[in-house]
Design a protein around this nucleic acid. Structure first.
Length: 297
DNA sequence: ATACTCTTTCAGTTCCATTG
DNA sequence: CAATGGAACTGAAAGAGTAT
């Protein structure tokens, strides 16, 4: 049966030093080992290669043909081994990779959109695949690598994953700017309850707090939509009043907003990722870019 | 022959992975 | 977790080769 020979990487370092110095004592000093230790390594090298490798001379040792033939490949192997220990560098401009992001409908608009704009500018060769997030499979998808980032709320982020808070969001009531209710001035609870309401209600939306808050004050007659992104358009073209995260209607001149007459808890948008990618330089850079994108909106 | 330099060998020790 | 065994280390001493 053929036995498989093994070779300690330290022996290659010794061989390299012996080839460079052509002297056991100096080679030992170079590697900070004692001279007998270096002699022992030379013995093991001779055993491993089944060749004398060096011939003793008056002032040191002379490499035999076999040792001379090993000089270049040994240096290449040692350089490659050194390369394994070096910190991997990440250059956004030239990086080519694919990332998978799951986001709530709300996060698509408020986080993913500005992030993609910044990403396209700084790292044009990074491909992004965006899916609607499923709160039941966040953990599994991040573990398996089918997802790299999840954008959700702090409440929905599993405890054993890495998270980073992005920004705090609050709810407002939104109606079209020429809505008759705005002529009443201050909006009291009774007027609010008398309105027709629309809310986003699905497991994929950012938060179902508004539905519970409206139910608490007896508002059950309402329109619900699966996708929170539909709210601004619905409000714009109807008399409906939407209880919506502020950032979904911010800056839209044909939509007016006012504080809800009941207390509706806001939420903290959160970036979630797995330990698997925690130290990956590319992912570290991407996480920072997501945070920066949120701060600029 | 002697001194010098360098390599090799030996005995003891330490470290570390494996095993029960 | 202690016992065990192998690998590799160290310092000391011996051996080999060469110049004077």
């Amino acid at each position: 049966m053929q036995t498989i020979k093994t070779l300690d990487l330290n022996l290659l370092k010794a061989l390299n030093a012996l080839l460079d110095e052509r002297n056991v004592t100096r080679a030992a000093e170079k590697l900070s080992v004692s001279q007998p230790a270096m002699s022992g390594m030379l013995t093991r090298l001779r055993d491993s290669f089944n060749d004398p490798l060096f011939i003793r001379t008056q002032h040191g040792i002379l490499p035999a043909d076999r040792a001379l033939g090993l000089a270049i490949p040994v240096k290449q192997i040692l350089e490659q081994a050194q390369g394994l220990l070096a910190e991997p560098e990440f250059d956004p401009a030239s990086a080519e990779l694919k990332i998978n992001i799951a986001a709530s409908d709300y996060a698509m608009r408020t986080i993913v959109t500005p992030f993609l704009a910044a990403l396209h500018h700084q790292a044009p060769n990074i491909q992004v695949n965006i899916t609607l997030f499923n709160p039941r499979s966040i953990q599994e998808d991040l573990e398996r690598g089918t997802l790299d980032f999840v954008l959700t709320t702090s409440e929905q982020a599993p405890d054993n994953l890495h998270t980073r808070a992005l920004f705090d969001e609050h709810y407002v009531c939104a109606v079209r700017t020429d809505h008759p209710v705005l002529q009443h001035g201050q909006l009291d609870l009774a007027t609010f309850c008398a309105l027709q309401h629309v809310i986003a209600l699905s497991e994929h939306t950012i938060n179902n707090t508004p539905a519970r808050a409206l139910a608490d004050i007896g508002i059950n007659r309402r329109v619900s939509v699966q996708n929170a992104l539909a709210l601004p358009d619905i409000v714009r073209h109807s008399d409906l009043c939407a209880v919506t995260p502020y950032r979904l209607i911010a800056g839209q001149t044909d939509i007016s907003h006012f504080p809800p007459p009941v207390n509706i808890l806001g939420f903290t948008t959160t970036l979630v990722w797995h330990e698997r990618t925690q130290r990956n330089p590319a992912h570290q850079w991407l996480r920072d870019l997501i945070v920066q994108s949120c701060q600029q909106t």
